[in-house]
């Protein structure tokens, strides 16, 4: 696998959306290519950053209690 092909598949690799065969090919390329590995780790980190940043918001307790009452 060439670096360009790896870069094309990186989003879907990070999203766990490649087939097992494709994912293995990307994994093998990453293990032998420090540049692509660094790019992959960056994309993984960025995805985690988005997730954790947006996950900070939780439904207020009073709202949860109110909903439970309404739905019961």
């Amino acid at each position: 696998m060439r670096c360009e092909e790896c870069a094309d598949k990186l989003d879907r690799f990070v999203d766990r959306e490649l087939t097992n065969t494709e994912a293995l090919e990307v994994q093998l390329h990453l293990e032998g290519c420090p540049d692509c590995m660094e790019h992959y780790e960056f994309e993984e980190h960025l995805k985690r950053l988005v997730k954790h940043s947006c996950e900070c918001d939780k439904a207020p307790t009073a709202f949860r209690d109110k909903l439970r009452q309404i739905l019961s």
Partner: peptide, 29 residues
């Protein structure tokens, strides 16, 4: 209700307003 946080933060990101988010989520439930 186990999915309330997911719905609430989704509604909050879509409306940008906590009151509108609560209205939207309540209506959805």
């Amino acid at each position: 209700l186990t999915h309330l946080d997911t719905l609430y933060r989704g509604a909050l990101r879509l409306t940008h307003d906590p009151d509108q988010a609560q209205d939207l989520v309540q209506e959805a439930y």
